[in-house]
Nucleic acid binder design. Structure first.
Lengths: 345, 345
DNA sequence: ACGCGTTACTGACGCGCGTTACTTTCGTGG
DNA sequence: CCACGAAAGTAACGCGCGTCAGTAACGCGT
């Protein structure tokens, strides 16, 4: 592979100085370049197939024009995350609009040193997805004043965060079940409660019940953990204790496992148990039955996170917390309650 | 935010030259540094919280130590790709093992200029996922000798590619149905046939039928297109023409739509129609019925692609084509054929 | 003829680091 | 006592570019 042309080569070919080449190619304002010269430079650059070395440009300019996305999740979480690709797309679009790139680092909890991405100047800012409370590196990074945006939430950390409104979404889901006349409404979380999204969604569930004057019955609650099998297990736990007439599962993927559990126990959905879940993965519309679910605007989430970190990098103030609205999508997995709770066949 | 310390600062603090600092921190071989000096340098670096500026290092070293992943897919494809996250994880792990990073560029077909990633020296090599035949930039890039690896396949392009063995996988799926006694086996593709993965899987289907002495009946074949709704539509097309007793769908996601179509038409799976699909997304095990499917080793695919591009960057020869093996996972959606084809209720 | 402003450019430095070639010091065998 | 080599370390250049201060040429009014 032949050596790449440099701006000096272009300068020589155009018969001008390197400085002039830089001025022309960067369309620098405040500098007058006659059209004749400009054309000569552009022609030379085109003829040589010149592409400015962006690494050198970064060094000279002091910014890397790259955003780091740190996935602080276990491999299982990543594999089961139905909306990660969409979020990434939103982030990439936000970055591209500002002439930045996205650098991805997948790093399971416990693994360290992702902060090198920032401290080494490889990225101008970091978006951290799904951090845990015990993320010491992150705390230090924020304390040192580096541009960081959390995707999700991390109470107690003085750092802007972008998230979907989990609480309102969950409340909306449960209110839908209440409006249909259901009263014994179970809840399976999307993850262990150490995850803020999980505890927020559980809070939304409880708020809706409380607002309807219903008691908070721990028998109706079980913990899921990202994948379908956890939903299956959680469902079995609940059914061993009691029989709900409706179910809120805080994740479509977990809901699929939960519904499998219901089927095995002889319950039909929505005949015996209405089910509403959360996320609105594309598949949800094609399950049997099609899932009523809360739409999580994944693309917008990535876009908002990208815009937030770009603002922070630019030194502009950013809202401490951005909450994206959710939306209820009613499908066939929820139906009105009909009198007594049905018994399994 | 205070200025980051440079190697000169460390040198001053340790009372040595910048060169020595570089030697110590990079553990350069062939250079003897007494332990006392080494410790002094390391201590100074630690005290100043020094992190080498990787951009400067890239400039000096001539390599960016970054791999570019270009997603040449439509937003719909990305959203419905159940294994993209896994592939990305494999790629990121491969990169990390070689001290590289992954830079992601999502670029729908038709949009241009992703080649800047490479030509500007921002990345050392590119992995292009799902390119189309008319990708002029890609052809030019390969012709110019830049390190590129295709994830998928692109016949006619002189460039290493890494893919799953689609043909063998599809053959395995159909052979499984044949072994169960099925004879009227329909096929719904995962994508339009312009996509090589789709046409390869269709070829595998045809080969299996031919090997069993069965005719190639076009009535039994329909085209899917990435998402569940396309599977639903394709299923309707087939059912309008004929009634199969088994079905091979070249994608789990599309299969979910197809099964919804079967249900609507009054057929049960696997009672009336056995279904086997492709990809083995995590959810497949929890559907109703759990799907028999061909496992696509997504993580390994990313890992292999990463290793291949790293080899190419290192200047070592790379196999023109790497095919990863698939695996049949038998679940409840396939059962033995029982005499006559059942009619819908 | 002279001063002054404008136009059209350029020289040279700095970004932070890797690296080569060189210097200085010291121990040692002859 | 001297030559020589190893040990320990350094000065200086280059990577490719952005950018500021500066300069040469020229027009113009007086």
């Amino acid at each position: 592979m032949l050596k790449r042309p440099t701006s000096a080569d272009v300068a020589a070919a155009a018969g001008v100085s390197r400085t002039t080449v830089s001025f022309v190619l960067n369309e620098r304002e405040g500098v007058k370049i006659p059209d004749e010269t400009r054309q000569r430079v552009l022609a030379a650059a085109a003829k040589l197939d010149y592409h400015p070395n962006s690494v050198a440009r970064q060094l000279a300019g002091g910014a890397s024009r790259a955003l780091g996305l740190v996935l602080r999740q276990t491999p299982e979480q990543v594999a089961n995350d139905g909306v990660l690709a969409e979020t990434l797309r939103g982030l990439a679009d936000a970055a591209r609009a500002a002439n930045h790139r996205v650098l991805v680092e997948t790093l399971a909890p416990g693994e360290g040193l992702y902060s090198n991405l920032l401290r080494s100047g490889r990225t101008d800012g970091l978006i951290v997805s799904g951090p845990r409370y015990d993320d010491v590196e992150l705390v230090q990074l924020v304390r040192d004043g580096f541009p960081v945006v959390i995707q999700g939430s991390q109470p107690g950390l003085d750092c802007p965060s972008v998230d979907v409104d989990n609480e309102a979404g969950a409340r909306m889901a449960v209110e839908h079940l209440l409006a249909l006349g259901h009263r014994r409404i179970a809840c399976i979380t999307n993850a262990p409660l150490a995850y803020t999204a999980a505890s927020e969604r559980l809070t939304g569930y409880r708020e809706a019940l409380a607002a309807a004057g219903l008691p908070d019955d721990p028998d109706l609650i079980a913990e899921g953990a990202f994948d379908a099998s956890s939903g299956h297990r959680a469902m079995a736990e609940i059914l061993a204790r009691t029989t709900p007439d409706a179910l809120f599962v805080a994740s479509d993927v977990v809901a699929i496992g939960a519904m499998a559990g219901l089927r095995e126990a002889g319950f039909s959905v929505p005949g015996d148990v209405s089910v509403v879940s959360f996320d609105a993965i594309p598949l949800a519309a094609y399950l049997d039955p099609p899932l009523t679910t809360i739409r999580l605007p994944a693309y917008d989430l990535g876009l908002a996170a990208g815009r937030a970190i770009l603002e922070r990098i630019a030194g502009r103030p950013v809202a401490a917390r951005t909450l994206l609205p959710t939306e209820l999508i009613v499908r066939a997995s929820t139906v009105p309650h009909h009198g007594a709770v049905r018994r399994p066949v």
